[in-house]
Simulated scan of single mutants.
Amino acid sequence: MTGMTGVIRTLVADDQAVVRTGFVNLLNTQDDIEVVTEAEDGAQAVALAAEHRPDLVLLDIRMPHLNGIDAAREILAASGGATRALMLTTFGLDEYVYEALAAGASGFLLKDCTFPELLHAVRVVAAGNALLAPEITQRLVAEFARQRSAVPPARDIEGLTAREAEVLVLIAQGLSNAEIAGRLTITDHTVKTHINRLFTKMELRDRAQAVILAYEMGLVRPSPTA
């Protein structure tokens, strides 16, 4: 989902100037990533995203005027799927991670991440995939899914085969395609086929939405230590 030049055009939004500048400077050292604009709050991020139409927006969850979740929701809706959102979070503190996934964010990045982790996250999300590192997203989703009030699910899994439901559970547990293949003793190609059918049947955009669905359907239970 990069631009025609193959460069990932990125918007960075964080109200902390030092953090924002650090991310911008690091990203701009890469030939395949270009920070086209930066914002100091969510409202500015929405306006600049409309103007620059970036491939990816890197948004702090907690910003003044408009938080990162609401900014992501507006940016993604306006882009018609052309822009992806990667959220910046402080592990164990942000209470809205689940809501960010539901708003369409494709993953999370810790503010104290390493340079390689930052580059990996940007490239994974820009390529149209979800960043679901078990040590970050799975625990956060589990924690805040437990806090959500119980509501009847909008979808059921009766249309899924037993194997497709099994794959859904493993996705929610943070396993990669290769790990799922090893767990189920099937080929990577077969895993991809199951995932494609699962996503089509349940109208899922990516693995982030699959995680949400698995928790909402009760297929995966948050662990007491999550």
Results as ranks from 00 to 15, higher is better:
His52Gln: 13
Val122Glu: 00
Ala154Gln: 12
Ala13Asp: 07
Arg73Ser: 12
Arg20Gly: 14
Asp60Gln: 14
Thr90Gln: 06
Asn25Phe: 05
Leu109Cys: 06
Ala126Lys: 06
Glu158Cys: 03
Arg53Tyr: 00
Pro134Ala: 13
Asp14Asn: 14
Ala71Asp: 13
Ile157Val: 13
Leu88Phe: 15
Gly6Met: 04
Gln30Phe: 02
Ala133Ile: 06
His194Asn: 15
Glu166Cys: 02
Phe91Pro: 03
Thr190Ile: 10
Asn129Cys: 01
Val97Asn: 06
Arg221Leu: 11
Ala154Lys: 15
Gln30Met: 07
Ala133Phe: 01
Gly128Tyr: 02
Met1Arg: 05
Leu59Val: 10
Leu175Val: 04
Leu140Cys: 09
Ser79Cys: 02
His189Cys: 02
Leu27Tyr: 05
Ala210His: 09
Ala103Ile: 08
Tyr215Met: 10
Glu135Arg: 07
Glu99Thr: 05
Ala77Pro: 00
Glu34Trp: 09
Gly3Tyr: 04
Thr29Gln: 14
Arg123Leu: 06
Val36Met: 09
Thr89Glu: 05
Thr5Tyr: 08
Glu158Arg: 15
Val220Pro: 03
Val18Thr: 15
Arg163Ser: 14
Leu184Thr: 13
Leu88Asn: 09
Ile8Asp: 00
Glu179Asn: 08
Arg197Gly: 08
Ala226Tyr: 12
Val125His: 04
Gly218Asn: 10
Gly6Asn: 05
Tyr96Thr: 03
Ile157Arg: 04
Glu143Trp: 11
His52Val: 02
Ala47Asn: 07
Ala210Lys: 09
Asp32Ser: 10
Ile136Pro: 01
Ile136Val: 12
Ala181Ile: 13
Glu164Trp: 03
Asp14Gln: 12
His194Arg: 08
Asp31Tyr: 05
Ala39Asp: 02
Leu58Met: 11
Gly159Trp: 03
Asn177Ile: 04
Gln16Thr: 13
Glu51Tyr: 01
Ala172Leu: 03
Tyr96Gly: 02
Ala162Thr: 03
Gly92Pro: 08
Leu58Tyr: 12
Arg20Glu: 09
Ala172Pro: 00
Ala214Pro: 03
Ala181Pro: 00
Leu76Arg: 14
Thr225Trp: 15
Val97His: 07
Arg163Asp: 15
Ser79Gly: 01
Pro152Asn: 11
Gln16Arg: 05
Val211Cys: 14
Thr2His: 04
Thr137Ser: 11
Ile8Asn: 01
Val169Asn: 04
Val36Trp: 00
Arg139Ile: 05
Gly159Gln: 10
Asp188Gly: 15
Arg84Cys: 04
Arg197Cys: 04
Pro222Gly: 13
Arg73Gly: 01
Asp31Lys: 11
Leu168Met: 08
Asp55Pro: 00
His194Glu: 15
Ser106Asp: 02
Leu204Lys: 13
